[in-house]
Design a protein around this nucleic acid. Sequence first.
DNA 1: TTTTGGCACTCGGGTGAAACGAGTGCTAAA
DNA 2: TTTAGCACTCGTTTCACCCGAGTGCCAAAA
Lengths: 352, 352
Amino acid sequence: MDSSRKDHRKDIVLEHIVEAHVATASPVSSKMVAARMGGNVSSATIRNVMSELEHHGLIEQPHTSAGRIPTNEGYRRYVSMRTNKVRQRKKEAERLAREYTLRVETIKEIIEKTTFLISRELHNAGVMIWPGMDNVYLRHLELVKVRSEVILAVLVTMTNAVKNYLIKLDSGIAVSELEKVARYVNENYAASPIARISDSMRETLDGDAVSDETGKILRTAIKVFDDVSKESLSNDIYWEGIDNFMDEPEFSDISFIRGLFQVFSEKKRELADILTRDLSSGDIKVYVGEECGLEMMRGCSMVTCGYFFRGKTVGRMGVVGPTRMDYDRALRTVSCLSDLISAKLDEFDVER
Amino acid sequence: MDSSRKDHRKDIVLEHIVEAHVATASPVSSKMVAARMGGNVSSATIRNVMSELEHHGLIEQPHTSAGRIPTNEGYRRYVSMRTNKVRQRKKEAERLAREYTLRVETIKEIIEKTTFLISRELHNAGVMIWPGMDNVYLRHLELVKVRSEVILAVLVTMTNAVKNYLIKLDSGIAVSELEKVARYVNENYAASPIARISDSMRETLDGDAVSDETGKILRTAIKVFDDVSKESLSNDIYWEGIDNFMDEPEFSDISFIRGLFQVFSEKKRELADILTRDLSSGDIKVYVGEECGLEMMRGCSMVTCGYFFRGKTVGRMGVVGPTRMDYDRALRTVSCLSDLISAKLDEFDVER
DNA sequence: TTTTGGCACTCGGGTGAAACGAGTGCTAAA
DNA sequence: TTTAGCACTCGTTTCACCCGAGTGCCAAAA
């Protein structure tokens, strides 16, 4: 048998090992692989192939006299054999699309619905980051006085998210003045990217003739948008369904669950940062085990994909589960949902 | 020894059993109780008392040849001996008070801070319900047009909570008209209890001379506030620190944790309802085990206390932990935090 | 050269007997 | 009424044992 065919068989065996292990959660024996391959090879042959795969670090034995399980590298190889052939199943896509036919008018609803669907479909945790400030467009601003020098800025974005920020001004301000500021912003900056509003205002202020009145308004508005951008530097994260983990045998160790839970609560910033880091591309990305950089994610994998608004990647969504995950299905579902919600988001954008 | 002194000793022994069990998490032996009582009674005497306590259903043996652990009834009795003597420790109260000296301007911040403090102080989960609509007072309303017949109502409450509701009108409406409605509401209903605004408007509408213009405004406003009240019938719940459970030996069984986690996620409504039910009183309340009515809370206790705004109980806050909980400390901490945040909330209310 | 049957070896898991010891209940004496 | 003493119980730990799934290697077959 020539070497290329031999390599191909190695991949086939690895595939079977991964898939059998995903299905059964226990080590896979040579006999089992032989059976899965139709019985036209003997287990002894498979044993030879397996020992090579082990040599390459793609599979390992939990102990002598046990079958093999894929290593992180094994999963990684398996995944890279898969990612280029993500074929969406039409029926599945249609079924998922129907889930969004009900009233979905805000990005909040989209995020809740999507993470819910991911967790339900894949029996794992669904995660999603909100669009960051540089990709969020203003629909409406309202300023509410809270105390003499403290105001509440309420922003409604083009994707109908309502965000509020408490802002401490340098000096007291009259309600009528606040109204003027809000009106000015709504008239001049509706549909602008929020992160760039304060800079654009500074230009106006530095530029030619600006009346005293307008100057005062601008200075307050600049303070507001500076604070807003500062307060939400990194994307916010939302998740759902982490209790699905608890069914998986690999998480029977409670300290594992605890660590993982912390990734989703106290340390959710770090998780959000990982997803934010990948925003430059909207492609599907797979992290196997600690690849993502979080020690506590050992034993877990994450399959994520960007979602789009106005043609730009504005956020990411995906699934977190054990490394022993049905990657094929995960890739399919995540990419399908990404398409669906990106289309939905663009509906928010039509001029009315 | 006369019978009243005898009964008193029973209580002392129960107290020691509860406290020792809380500390060690294992069954308490007669020898251990004798030692805790200063060694002037023998273990044999304690054994007699214990057998009586067992007879009364206050303690039980996990098996022969083991010490005793308190039953739910035992905890209940222990707690009722305690609740009337909740004495706040001054130093502790001052330490907690300092946690709120930093900027806390909105009820959201208060809720996050308080549940965090509860979970940190008591190493259990902190829970808190938001004030319900009938106790929430309007500070400001803003109406933003989303689509021809869909608007977004953004409410700012007196406690600086920002809530938003998507509302589907019966017919399209102009932006200028929306502005009029919002202005009318802000001028006439600021500082009113939100749940009663639509009724009050209906009265105005049914009453004497109302101009066509005002009538139109009122009808839209009524639709808005009807929808708002409808959408938030029950109080919203917030929690923090349920991972603290995972350290306790009684939760080493993962299915327990899973059930509990569901109480805090999918079934959080039921938990919120339990707290809402108790809103009539602001007193401290203790649920031992399934007393609260949730089967999944078996093995858990909940210590809650109301918090106040304008002298009325508007919400509840407390701690959820294993029945084997330091009730003394829980009662102290919860009641202390209730006082602190009620005072803080009232600061929001001063006329400005 | 590759595949395969055969076989010895490994090692985790399950089973059962035995020893241990913490804790009890009861009794009789203080 | 309290207490010392003692027999008894029963969960836990330990150890020896066996079973069987699975491997690695070798020599024969293809």
